[in-house]
Amino acid sequence: MSNAHKVIIIGSGPAGLTSAIYTARASLSPLVIEGEPSSTSDQPGGQLMLTTEVENFPGFPEGIMGPELMMRFREQAARFGAEFITEKVTKVDFNSRPFKVWIRDTEHTADSIIVATGAQSLMLDLPRESELIGHGVSTCATCDGFFFRNHEIAVVGGGDSAIEEAMFLTKFASKVHLIVRRDALRASRIMQERALNNEKIQIHWNSRVSELHGTDKLESVTLESTTDGSTSPLGVTGLFIAIGHKPNTGLFTGVLDMEDSGYLLTREGSTYTNIDGVFACGDVQDHVYRQAITAAGSGCAAAIDCERWLEHQH
């Protein structure tokens, strides 16, 4: 593999891999720098790698497992000649062309860039949280739910992903406490109904987790009321966190225009960023829809924008 490319795609969720399929079919021989293995949502394949059944991706009436879907995306891109590096980009320089992208000491150059680095799950940011990961605190319900057979556990969050995790975990746990900050769920109607009708799920409204307890593994948490600040203990051996996402844009600080929240800004109705030749797609620039199918759609748009832009450079 030479280090000079027509297009480098950074990220490999639905957006990145769809842009890879399209640019590969347009004979642009894309290089996909897909990220590196981890047990958080920041990994090759993106957030779907940590889900189970995906029921709303068109074309799969019976549903499909998230990791399986992403494997198929990747195979499809590879079939048309996309190349992959399973590492993380460590630095970029978009000041001059060709653009430069580094993986530690290795420099790659490209005529154009598609940024599809996605978003990752937020953590609670509590003392002891990171040391209890793998010991009761989990970032991956599908990986760890199995270990909580007949345990009482808690899920933090009120959106679709929190409900989805809570529903999944009822297969194993004796009871799932859903900790919701407000007095309503953000989740879609169908997910809300499922949660409210599931007798294993108990919802704690207006609550947040303020402390984690346990020496070698999680034994309980402290719940704090978001209305009057009162606290109460909750004995749970597992805590699954699904409170939202932050975009993976640390690499682009001071380089690409972004909102205060870190999401990349794209020109209205397109995938153009503030730098000509650099395109952005998927969750890294979308905090509104955030679906696999919308990410894939914007990945396709980025590939087409990129292809047309490249044509006009000659």
Partner: peptide
């Protein structure tokens, strides 16, 4: 072995646990 998360990798030598790795890593 108190494994509560996968992947977990335990390194044994002479029957004793030498090191524990929790979670996927590069």
């Amino acid at each position: 072995f108190n494994v509560m998360s996968i992947p977990t990798m335990l390194l044994f030598h002479n029957g004793e646990i030498q090191h524990k790795v929790v979670g996927a890593k590069p």
